[in-house]
Design a protein around this nucleic acid. Sequence first.
DNA 1: TCCTCATGTGAATGGTCATTCACATCAAAC
DNA 2: GTTTGATGTGAATGACCATTCACATGAGGA
Lengths: 199, 199
Amino acid sequence: MTTVKLGTQVRQEQIARAALGLLATHGLQGLNIKRVAQRIGMVPSAIYRHFKSKEEILDAVLGLIEERLVGNVQAVCEESADSLERLRLLLMHHIQLIRENEAVPRVVFSEEVGFGDPAKKSRLYGIISRYLQEVEEILRRGQKEGAIRAELDPATVAVMFLGLIQPAAILWHVSSGRFDVTRQASKAWEIFREAIRTR
Amino acid sequence: MTTVKLGTQVRQEQIARAALGLLATHGLQGLNIKRVAQRIGMVPSAIYRHFKSKEEILDAVLGLIEERLVGNVQAVCEESADSLERLRLLLMHHIQLIRENEAVPRVVFSEEVGFGDPAKKSRLYGIISRYLQEVEEILRRGQKEGAIRAELDPATVAVMFLGLIQPAAILWHVSSGRFDVTRQASKAWEIFREAIRTR
DNA sequence: TCCTCATGTGAATGGTCATTCACATCAAAC
DNA sequence: GTTTGATGTGAATGACCATTCACATGAGGA
């Protein structure tokens, strides 16, 4: 066996990424240590040099997901200063995220994660809340600038914003890619934009 | 042991219901034959007198879910003849469904079901599609009657309609009931209504 | 160069779970 | 009342899987 040795930091990164990738192709059900190990050319037991348990790996995956979601928001804010445009871009980035890594929305929104321990459930809640707050921030700013209707509740609209993508992502998955997410998102966005912008 | 015997038809119904209930409390991960059997006072092996496999039970659960979703649409259509009102009622019924049986939206929209065999995935797709078509039908009728803006694509709007509830349901779950679904749905509905109705 | 410790390996352990089977028991037809 | 077939039971089987452990090995400091 070609025993290659790498530092724990590198391995942890590899393992978390591998797990995230496996979630996309096999779901939470099909995620096991053996597969994770295979994916990075290790033996199952070696995984335990870098993570205490499978649960801990799941935690790392959640971290990875949080990172990407927050990254999307930041990227979008740098790409444009216009509130409505930021939201549109965020929508598109989110779709891109789904395309590249199907697992992100699945894990975040599947609820399956964190049935066992309440800790994971609240961790998930934290991640979603944080994302929602970022969206709300964009909305509030748009209201202050007069681009978005001031009488709308940012919290409500932020959740609605999530609703623009999520059902579409699921349809995409269960239809085995036949359902056109991008098209749905574009058309839904127009309706949504007209609903929230000032007239 | 108090051996009570019942017909297969009755047992199948009991088993499917028990499984659906367990999905709500334990998720797909925690759904096993032992628990299902316990819930209806049987021994695990007895389950196999009425279902060939666990997969087959899952199929029955999907049937149950489809039944309830379609039932909601029918009920709503009997309650009101007005398109917008029908949609509002459907939204509320859906929330009621979530409250009574958390598992319905979870199973339908979690994507975890049907990772193994493609058959289950397309079954799920069928169920969602059917529900969407019913919503589209209501929308088209509203357009014909002039209550809903004619230039909107019913298919797009129907998916958006799903998006009004789904993220809220998930937030409700991961927040352990702290997030107020009903409030979110009501407020989101108003915004949605204004977006689709004729002005 | 050698030591040492972090990292990797293969085998073993213990648990869970779906499924099967030989046997028991009830209910209904005769 | 007896027979028969459907339904229920407890034990057993085999698979899968997370985790552990004794041992091996490589990389970097001494």
